[in-house]
């Protein structure tokens, strides 16, 4: 992007271009147009590869490597990555409520006990207690972020010594960021 620019001044004030260049900024190519140009050149290059590969012996390993894999890779890059199926990590990223619903489900509870009920009277309270614990942790964290106060404070320690403390946005506490 940085190097591929359309200089509007170059065609008008070409002899004086370098005199005015620092006063008038050049205009960058619109991304859509640049992408179109890249795609056109890529297609041309791919066609050249396919044509040349056709001259190779049929058993040459480059046949498969260049034609099939390159075409797939180019399609991926230009049209975006191929979506992957949901897995456990993506489930975690969806938020705590998804995990909580899984944890509090009867299937999870019975599976965690090996499929058998232990007969413990507190067993139904485990999932709600866990949910409550997590909600309290989230709530405390959010409240901490909302604490008001100046970003920095300067404290006079006497004898001309002053220190500036910076506020941690989540804990609300002031910390000394100076190195010594």
């Amino acid at each position: 992007m940085l190097y591929y620019r359309h200089d509007v001044l170059a065609g008008i004030f070409n002899p004086l271009h370098h005199c005015f260049g620092r006063h008038f900024k050049t205009v960058e190519e619109p991304p859509a147009r640049l992408k179109h140009q890249v795609k056109a050149l890529l297609d041309a290059a791919l066609l050249e590869v396919e044509r040349t590969v056709g001259e190779l012996p049929a058993t040459d390993y480059l046949q498969d490597l260049l034609v099939l894999r390159l075409r797939r890779r180019i399609t991926e890059i230009l049209n975006g990555p191929i979506p992957k199926p949901d897995h456990s990590l993506s489930l975690l990223k969806k938020g705590p409520m998804t995990i909580l619903s899984v944890l509090s489900s009867p299937t999870f509870a019975s599976a965690s006990n090996g499929g058998k009920s232990t007969g413990c009277p507190f067993e139904p309270l485990v999932a709600p207690a866990l949910m409550l614990f997590i909600l309290i942790a989230i709530g405390r964290n959010c409240l901490g972020c909302r604490r008001r106060g100046p970003d920095t404070i300067t404290v006079d320690h006497g004898c001309g010594g002053r220190k500036t403390y910076r506020r941690d946005h989540c804990s609300g506490r002031y910390r000394d960021d100076s190195c010594c």
């Binding site: 050149l41 890529l42 050249e48 590869v49 390159l70």
Partner: peptide, 17 residues
Amino acid sequence: GVYRQIGRALGKMVYLL
């Protein structure tokens, strides 16, 4: 000769990609 042509086209593609 064929490999040279392929290499040149591939190099161009690598840069563009």
